[in-house]
Design a protein around this nucleic acid. Structure first.
Lengths: 189, 189
DNA sequence: GCAAAAAACCTATAGCCATTAGGCAAACGG
DNA sequence: CCGTTTGCCTAATGGCTATAGGTTTTTTGC
């Protein structure tokens, strides 16, 4: 019998795909083993436990989002940068709902410190350099942006807008426009 | 043997307490049965399945939040109302993290329609009457508020601010102040 | 090339969870 | 009281996580 060629990394990657297909909460070691045509116990040579799988998917998602965001931000500033960054979050969540859910997993402090989470915060601060915000306002603004992006994407994913699904795109554009105005300290046009 | 006196409602209420203690994702039919000193199978006379338990907790949380919000909103308008409403969300999530998580559960359309979710939206629109927003701006604003409130509370609960935990209260106040200004269409003071 | 070591996958097992079927006994209605 | 309803029980199935220890394939060092 040919071997499946499992590695921790392949498992995490396949777990991420599985998450997008069936939802992050349904990612199990068993389902993953099934997908590789292998017994469940076999995965435990490559995985400490199921938590490690989930954490791995979360870290992968955080990296992928950070990479996309870094790309999107290159050469942009001001509102342009704000929109590009925001759209990375929203698009990623739509393309990869399972991974996005994983990215919201609560990580233990050490893991979080070693994650791409720091890059996310750094990029937000980079965007805010285009606005005139000193500390502590900048920190407040980072939190505001994080809240709005995550909140909107999460409500949208949860179907929170579906009964009145109309204009989710318009709402998003409006919100970004007003956020930009808010950060500039000027009324919206 | 004296009977435990189980009912669907008591189970949901106890499930909500359990959620606050151990986290919503650890609420299980078994754990609930244990808490009542009863066999797991016994709960299935009062509960269709574990999903119904979770849904029940979600509906309870939505009602509780709506009730608190209605109280908080009474006699208030403008920024005062905005802050009161926002604080209901934040305080509720802090006092009842498990219930709050339950409230974010994705409900099927019928259940959602019968939930207190509609009251939440209605109250947001009531708050926005204190600002000068016609449709479709009002809908956009409802979504913005929902995003910010949920996003902030959720990031805070996930420990997203804990590495730089400082000033979560200040950030919250700043955000509400700027949101108010944004909705008024004027620059922040 | 080849034997020993290492790595990959397997079987077996145990515990916890959800859920169903069917039984006994307590409470309640007449 | 006695029968019926109802509440909780035992028993059993099947899925999931996880550990222990075996076997086979691959690697590696001579």
């Amino acid at each position: 019998m040919a071997r499946a060629g499992l590695t921790g990394e392949r498992l995490v990657r396949a777990g991420a795909e599985l998450a997008d297909e069936v939802g992050f909460e349904h990612v199990t070691v068993s389902a993953l083993a099934r997908r590789f045509g292998v017994r469940t116990a076999s995965l435990y040579s490559h995985l400490e436990n199921s938590q490690e799988l989930r954490t791995g998917i979360a870290l992968l998602a955080l990296e992928e989002i950070a990479d996309r965001a870094a790309d999107a931000l290159a050469g942009r500033a001001g509102k342009d940068a704000l929109e590009a960054f925001a759209n990375v979050y929203r698009d990623y969540a739509r393309e990869h709902p399972g991974r996005y859910a994983a990215a919201r997993l609560r990580l233990d402090p050490d893991t979080a410190a070693a994650s791409a989470g720091g890059r996310h915060a750094q990029m937000m601060r980079a965007i805010l350099r285009g606005y005139d915000l000193a500390e502590p306002e900048q920190t407040h603004a980072v939190r505001l942006l994080g809240s709005v992006f995550h909140g909107y994407v999460s409500l949208e994913a949860a179907g929170g807008f579906s009964h009145s699904a109309s204009g989710a795109q318009e709402s998003w554009a409006w919100i970004l426009d007003r956020l930009d105005a808010l950060l500039r300290g000027r009324p919206a046009g």
